[in-house]
Design a protein around this nucleic acid. Structure first.
Lengths: 140, 140
DNA sequence: GTCGAATGTACATTGTCTGTGTACATTCGA
DNA sequence: TCGAATGTACACAGACAATGTACATTCGAC
């Protein structure tokens, strides 16, 4: 079965497009939106949909293939592999926590209201713990 | 009065050094650690302390000067300007919230434990609300 | 089996961003 | 007046992202 995910890419974002694509797809993969042997859109197809170069999509696919999520084959398209959920990596965890604190500090320094920020943080935490299965697709 | 802030720079971080410096100083400025007409270390002095190039520090100072925090003068060093706290910029706020959600999603997808993440989010929110009262200058 | 099209890949190119090297302009104190 | 301290300007190198282009491979039509 071929699944056509709806992704939203922000060309103005600071995060590179290929990583945005990889992140969005990884979130879907983790959330169980696909099943093993599902096929994703071809490199060129998704590139057309998103309005980016096919090599950009290929790079995103390659990232996920490197993580064991996808299997890329010429002409055969992109198939989803069976894969266990990622193992918690202590180094990655501390890295993410650092980035989190850094981001909050930066937002504060830019005048983002404490209340707004705190509300969002609590909201995110709440949603994390509430959703046993975080299979929420992207909502635009 | 010359204030010598203690900054910690992470050369391995993904965020550029000059922005780390600017962020750290901005946080101190917002927090009221300096008073108007305080002088910060010279470009070369701070550069030596941090072990980076003086142009890197100059770039950070220039960022803050562009935001109205500092006044740079040749030979006279860097003086802190009286400045109102940044007014909340709706565009900036939504931008930061987007980056926040993006970061959390990425962490999740990389296998960072939900509980750990949620705990950190709550902790940050808690610290935000209980700590300083909206950037009031600290008077002891 | 042959051929053409579809598809992933490889590589060079271009533009941007950081950090640095180096020289210069300016300003203060002796 | 003069020299040193200090911020500034500009070019350079390296890394990275996105793209243009050509190629290798594989499937389906016939």
């Amino acid at each position: 079965m071929t699944v056509t995910p709806t992704l939203s890419i922000d060309l103005a974002s600071a995060t590179p497009v290929y990583r945005q694509i990889a992140n969005a797809l990884r979130a879907l993969l983790v959330g169980g939106a696909f099943r093993p042997d599902d096929t994703l859109p071809t490199v060129r197809q998704l590139a057309t949909d998103l309005g980016v170069h096919h090599n950009t999509v290929a790079e995103a696919y390659r990232v996920l293939a490197g993580e064991g999520w996808l299997d890329l084959k010429r002409r055969r398209g992109v198939t989803v592999l069976a894969r266990e959920l990622p193992q918690p990596d202590p180094a990655a965890e501390t890295g993410f926590l650092s980035r989190l604190r850094e981001l909050v500090a930066e937002a504060m320094a830019h005048g983002v209201s404490k209340e707004l920020l705190a509300r969002e943080l609590r909201e995110l935490a709440h949603r994390l713990l509430e959703n046993g299965h975080d299979g929420e697709a992207n909502k635009e």
